[in-house]
Every structure is written in structure tokens, then in C-alpha cells.
């Protein structure tokens, strides 16, 4: 932090891939060792920059999936976009020991601070779960008591990120609820057909507006706009709804 404070501006650093794991058939977590990492807040992201041998550069933003507890690596979960320029490299090519250029942590708006006491509603569309998972992990790390509800929309059960960890946290982290909505294919025996999130979903599984929850919505643009519009229509204070959009593909 001291070094950053001298210039006041942010520069690129070199991160080393210390490990990887597949979260779904198309999403992979990169575990990165970043020297002198200053720590981050849940919801913040980093920019990753790739440089081709001919000097061509491509840069993308990725949410940080891990919580910072004063030490340890930084984890990013990257969803492969088949027509993407950067993500297929990060999901399919990168191996342990590779180095990546990284800038961050950045973004001070779509963040949850463990000092916040209000109930929290997290609404995730697909890999929009990543920054929200960092919030759940940060709450778990400090044994937070804020009531947390996650509503997570995914296409099929195969697309669930962090399914085992979320099931464990629902059991072990008091006050955390998770509700899944499947848009294309449900698990066997699921009590409702595949559908998109609706007024009824957010009304039944979110918090009443009277509770004054902090709402975080992250996903593809159309998902974010639908969910945020529903929350406002249900009576939530627009100033307490924070959104983060990625990409145009649903």
C-alpha cells in the first residue's frame, strides 16, 4: 500500500498461476500468487492484460472470487466465452507457473464491506455469481451475522459454480440462504419447471423492502436490467441496488 500511495496511481503487476480448478465444464478458477498484493474488498475486480508475440494486447476485467483474509493467493473464476478473445486462453491454455499481467484491485462501488449491518440480497445470473461469492466468503471469514440471501439463476445444474461449497456454507454459515433458478433444465425432481427469474422469485426468496436490504445484482446485461427493474417495482430503494453487468451473451 505504501508504494501505491507514493504515486497514487495504479500500475500493472505480474501474477503467477499457482493452481487451477474447473468449477464447471466451461468455467475455471485461476489461483494467482501476486507479490505485494494490497488486499481487496469483496466485489472488486482486476484487469488482466495479455500480450501476443507481435505486441498486440487485449485487456479484460475479471471479478475476484476469493475473500482477502490478510494473506494468500487471489482467485479469479473465468467463464469461457467461445467467441471470446481472452477467456478461452485463460480457461483452456493457462497452466501452473504461467505469468499474467494484472492490475488491481479496482472498483469501489460494487463492493460489500463486512462493517455493513443491513441484510443482503445477492442476485446472480450465470457467472455473475463470482463477485457475490467473494462477498459470501468474506462474510464467512469474519463469521458475519448479516442475513444473506442468494438467488442464483443458471441454465442447467451442470452450470452451477461453487455448488459444493455453497451447500456446505448454507449448513455452516448461520443466516445464509441460497435459492437456485434453472432457466433451461432443472435437476430431476425439482419442484418447478425451468424458468427465468420473475417478480414472484424475487418477492418470495428475496427480502421485503421494509428490511432495507443492500441488493447486489450481477450478470449479463439483460438479466441485470430485469432483476433491478423487478426490485424497484417491489419497492426496494434504487439507491440500495448496486449492479454490475458483463458481456452481451446470456
Amino acid at each position: 500500500m505504501a508504494r501505491a500511495a507514493v504515486s497514487g496511481r495504479l500500475t500493472w503487476r505480474v501474477a503467477t498461476v499457482a493452481g487451477t480448478r474447473w468449477e464447471t465444464p466451461t468455467a475455471r478458477t485461476l489461483v494467482l500468487d501476486v507479490p505485494d498484493w494490497p488486499g481487496h474488498l469483496p466485489g472488486q475486480h482486476v484487469d488482466v492484460r495479455l500480450t501476443a508475440p507481435d505486441g498486440y494486447r487485449a485487456q479484460r476485467s475479471y471479478s475476484i472470487a476469493s475473500a482477502w483474509t490478510g494473506d494468500g493467493p487471489v482467485e479469479l473464476t473465468v467463464q469461457r466465452l467461445d467467441d471470446g478473445e481472452v477467456s478461452p486462453y485463460l480457461t483452456d491454455e493457462v497452466t501452473d507457473g504461467d505469468q499474467l499481467e494484472l492490475r488491481g484491485p479496482v472498483g469501489g462501488w460494487f463492493v460489500w464491506r463486512p462493517e455493513q449491518t443491513a441484510p443482503v440480497l445477492l442476485v446472480a445470473g450465470g457467472s455473475g455469481l463470482v463477485p457475490l461469492m467473494a462477498m459470501i466468503r468474506a462474510r464467512g471469514a469474519v463469521r458475519g451475522r448479516q442475513p444473506f440471501r442468494l438467488i442464483c439463476s443458471v441454465r442447467t445444474p451442470r452450470d452451477l459454480l461453487y455448488a459444493d461449497e455453497l451447500a456446505r456454507r448454507v449448513r455452516d454459515d448461520p443466516g445464509l440462504d441460497v435459492r437456485y433458478v434453472y432457466t433451461r433444465q432443472t435437476p430431476d425432481g425439482w419442484p418447478e419447471p425451468a424458468k427465468r427469474i420473475s417478480v414472484a422469485t424475487l418477492n418470495s426468496h428475496g427480502w421485503p423492502p421494509d428490511f432495507g436490504p443492500d441488493c447486489f445484482v450481477c450478470g449479463p446485461t439483460s438479466f441485470v436490467e430485469t432483476a433491478a427493474d423487478i426490485l424497484v417495482a417491489l419497492g426496494h430503494d434504487p439507491r440500495k441496488i448496486r449492479t454490475e453487468r458483463f458481456g452481451g451473451t446470456a
Binding site: H45, G108, E244, F246
Partner: peptide
């Protein structure tokens, strides 16, 4: 072309400004 939002400007603006301008 894809649409993101101003959150994604944080890194580029932090190269120029000393403060986080995405909260401005």
C-alpha cells in the same frame, strides 16, 4: 461489441486518477 458498465472503467481510470472515479 458488448455492453458492460462503468465498473469496468475502474482500472483504466485508476491509471490516470489517484482516486477511484467509478464512485464519482
Amino acid at each position: 461489441m458488448s455492453m458492460l458498465d462503468g465498473n469496468a472503467l475502474a482500472g483504466d481510470l485508476r491509471e490516470v486518477f489517484a482516486a477511484d472515479v467509478t464512485t464519482a
